[in-house]
Structure formats: C-alpha cells, structure tokens
C-alpha cells in the first residue's frame, strides 16, 4: 500500500471509538458554525476560503524533522490568528474533509478522529495561547509572529496527544502508551517548530500588507487599563 498518508488511516482506532469521535466532531462543528456566523461578514467569508486553501497547500509541504521522519503544518494557530477560533476550526475541517473525500488522505472512518485532533483540539489550544499572549505582547507584526510561533508549537503537540488519547481508548494494537505518547510528543515538538516558523512568517506578512484582514489585530481586545480608566472617570 503505497500512500502519501498524512492523517490517521482507517483501522488504527476501532469502529466504536471512531464513531463516538465522529458524532463529537459533528456536534462541535455545528456549534462552531453557530458561533462563526457572528464573525463572518462579507470580508471574512472569502478570506476564510483563502485561509483554508492556503492550509491545504502548506499541508502538502512535508519538511524533514528527523532521519526518516517528516512533518507538515496542521494550521490551527494560523487560522485562529487570521480568521478567529470558530471560523478557523471550520477552515481546518474543510481542508481535512476535502483531503479525505478527494485525495484519499485520512481514513473516512477516521475523519472524526482527525477533525477532533487537528481542527478542534489544535485550534482550541492555539486560540487559548493566542488570546493569552496577545494580552502581553505588542499588537504588531513582530508580536503576532512570536505569538504564532509559540502557540503553534503547543497546539501541534496537543493535537498529537489527541491521537494518543484516541489510541488509548480504541487502538487496534497494544503498544505501550507512554512510548506512543513520548514518540508522538518528540516528533511533534519538532514539527511544531517548523509549523511555528511558517505560521509566524505568514501572519507577519499579512499583518504588514493588510493588517485589517488579521482577526487577531481586530479582536482579542486587551482588557481596559484599570488605572487610566479610573483617572478618566
């Protein structure tokens, strides 16, 4: 079986656990659609399409991280910064669905698992870090680049541990969980560094060319400075 597999294939996690995660993924995506509607205006909708297309493209660019091991961007953090968490999760899901249905990448049975790890967990972790870091870092291209880098590394490792959790629940083989977890964490820390560099370059470029199109520069407002507010009041 010669494949360019990048996501979880069929048969690695058993049917019942895959089905549970498929239901979970559908429910979470429906919730994201509801929340995303508040963000989606006539400017963000085409921008979100571009973000999805860009993530599709960059996911094809596997880079070497160890001898015999490569990795590619997952895209959750990049999407959060450019189009926000709800639309961002939908962007990554769109990519995963197109890859599964048209490019035979990521098993159809495993689609819920892949969406859970990369579109939901990865994006959620990226969002928490981006929202936190932008409270302290400057809101310019440099601050955004540092934020993208740090959040990407953490987000990719979190997504990789999502697979470990699913494998623990329904793996069709019985390998040592600490070994699986450690191996995944090591390779995905390195992949996260690569993703972080790509995401940082991308968001810094967009922030310079069209800062008005960067969701993170419009939202995630800093809490009102208490002292100044007190003085003015």
């Amino acid at each position: 079986m010669e494949t360019t597999a990048m996501h979880i294939a069929n048969g690695i996690v058993d049917g019942p656990v895959s089905a549970v995660f498929a239901v979970l993924a559908v429910a979470a995506l429906a919730f994201c659609v509801r929340k995303a509607r508040n963000d989606l205006d006539e400017r963000l909708a085409p921008m979100a399409g571009l973000v999805a297309a860009f993530i599709f493209a960059v996911q094809m660019l596997n880079f070497q991280v160890l001898p015999g091991v490569s990795g590619h961007l997952l895209g959750g953090t990049l999407a959060v910064i450019l189009v926000g968490p709800w639309v961002g999760a939908l962007c990554v899901s769109t990519v995963l669905i197109v890859q599964c249905l048209l490019f035979a990448d990521g098993g159809l049975t495993a689609l819920g698992l892949n969406i859970t790890n990369m579109a939901l967990l990865g994006t959620a972790a990226g969002y928490l870090l981006v929202a936190g870091l932008l409270r302290v870092l400057p809101r310019n291209a440099q601050g955004l680049a540092v934020t993208a880098f740090v959040a990407s590394v953490v987000s990719v490792v979190v997504a990789s541990q999502g697979f470990v959790f699913e494998y623990a629940l329904g793996g069709t083989t019985e390998l040592s969980l600490p070994w699986v977890s450690g191996t995944m964490a090591l390779s995905h820390t390195l992949i996260g560094i690569g993703e972080g560099l790509i995401a940082a370059t991308t968001v810094a470029t967009v922030a310079k060319v069209r800062p008005d199109l960067v969701y993170a520069l419009r939202r995630f407002r800093k809490p009102a400075p208490v002292v100044e507010a007190g003085v003015k009041a």
Partner: peptide, 17 residues
Amino acid sequence: GVLITFGVGAGLFWVAR
C-alpha cells in the same frame, strides 16, 4: 486541491455569513 478547497470553503462561509 487549492481551487476546490477555496471554492468549497469560500462558498460555505459566504452562505453562512
């Protein structure tokens, strides 16, 4: 892949906007 992903994504997001 890029054009299909853009078409599907932008189309759905446009409808949901």
